[in-house]
Design a protein around this nucleic acid. Structure first.
Lengths: 155, 155
DNA sequence: ATTGGACTGTATGGTGCCATACGAAGTGCA
DNA sequence: TGCACTTCGTATGGCACCATACAGTCCAAT
């Protein structure tokens, strides 16, 4: 937990020069790489709730970094896309991200990082099953139909 | 980060039967194992700010689980100690903790856990130095005189 | 055509934590 | 003996996120 906080802090600080926190930067970067998407998809990608995404979009929209455009196929949904200012910022974000990643990886081999990722996934799985049955010893239920997709912000 | 959240959630849920969250349980457990201590020490041990500790003590004090007693040697400080109810609860806390630890370790060898801990410490160190110099390439300053003590809630 | 269920984004209230600023009390130095 | 400096706990305001409930919309089945 402490490590997670340290890393988040390092990211927040790195992005503070761009006046963004980690989540905001992730959103802009993610849109830059995957194109406009609706808020529910963003929430899934960034592992946040829909409400949190909504208020993030609010903030970034007032700063003209992203923009809500109606989805022509579904009047319920907004497509969130980067403005030109947002796109410009995105390349900087990705640059900073890669730079910080390099510093975090410092002294860790590729194999080690792979193993670390593996450990974390296993821990998460254990935590999830543990959260399922509290005091009981019941077998793990069918709660997790969502084997966490790689391709998120792992690595 | 996601893993950290999952673990915290598992802990919170495990302790919810005792009507405690992870931080509260950690505090009572820590006092139970190390004896009464002042709030600054508690903050360092639980890796929280002093203000957060203060309000936690407030909560637990109204529930008569801990108690503030004046430090005879320093009139600024309160020593926080478990009440008898708190001590009773502590053994339950430790039991739940050990049980959950076992479930988290599931499928991980002792060597693997050791290695994981090592990775996390290294990552934290990297994050700390990265947080020191943002865009500059200056050498790490003397900010971190506090090599994170083992003996906390690692393992 | 209507209705029920599933899904989208929003509103609201709550939680846990931080950063900052403060008064009170201790400590070192002239 | 006085005066700065530090340290302790507290107060305040803010942030990021969650859970829940809700209105609007889509879709499938009658």
């Amino acid at each position: 937990m402490v490590t997670a906080r340290d890393i988040r802090q390092a990211y927040d600080q790195s992005f503070s020069s761009l006046d963004l926190n980690l989540s905001q930067a992730s959103m802009i970067g993610y849109i830059a790489e995957n194109g406009p998407m609706n808020q529910t998809e963003l929430a899934a990608a960034l592992v946040l709730g829909r409400a949190a995404i909504g208020s993030m979009v609010d903030q970034l929209e007032t700063r003209r970094l992203v923009r809500r455009v109606p989805d022509p196929d579904d009047r319920r949904v907004w497509l969130v896309e980067n403005t030109s200012a947002g796109s410009t910022l995105a390349v900087e974000i990705i640059r900073v991200d890669e730079q910080l990643r390099r510093r975090l990886r410092d002294g860790m081999s590729r194999a080690e990082r792979q193993q670390l990722a593996d450990f974390l996934v296993r821990l998460s799985a254990n935590a999830a099953t543990a959260a399922g049955g509290i005091g009981d010893l019941s077998p793990p239920n069918e709660i997790e139909t969502h084997t966490p997709q790689t391709g998120d912000i792992n690595d």
